[in-house]
Design a protein around this nucleic acid. Sequence first.
DNA 1: GCCAACGTTGGC
DNA 2: GCCAACGTTGGC
Length: 156
Amino acid sequence: MSYWLFKSEPSVFSIADLAASRGRRTHWDGVRNYQVRNFMRERMRVSDRAFFYPSSCAEPGIVGIVSIVKGAYPDPTQFDPDDPHFDPRSTRENPRWYMVDVALERQLARPITLAELKRYAGKELKGMALLRRGNRLSITPVSEAEWSFILSLERR
DNA sequence: GCCAACGTTGGC
DNA sequence: GCCAACGTTGGC
């Protein structure tokens, strides 16, 4: 069982959108980065859990927990010429991009902001992928120690 | 295969 | 809106 962090711009898809989705569940489509694709295909498994992290917004941070409910399968938006994520190099026989399905487990009692996480960047969260300089990956791995430490902040 | 130009991400 | 970081593209 692995842990992850999923970024999403709230103007595109917020945790409220996820909460309002049928079955509180969605397809995590639109990933167009090879490293992230490989995470999904090679390491992500059903019942893995992930933090939901709004990015590019007033207060980036962790606001909820999702679980993986379906493992990697081809992202149909790569085949749709009318979709902004269309990729002409992809074929149905040889898809290039994958997605997983996630379901909302719960929202946190309070947001744990990026600013707060950064306070532990030199200690408990040293080396956390999210906090590494220049990190732009939309999905990053979270270690078990990072996961439980971050959750311990929730009720503080 | 190199590398400059370009586009995107994402915090501030 | 700015800018640093960094992945991708394409000419050579």
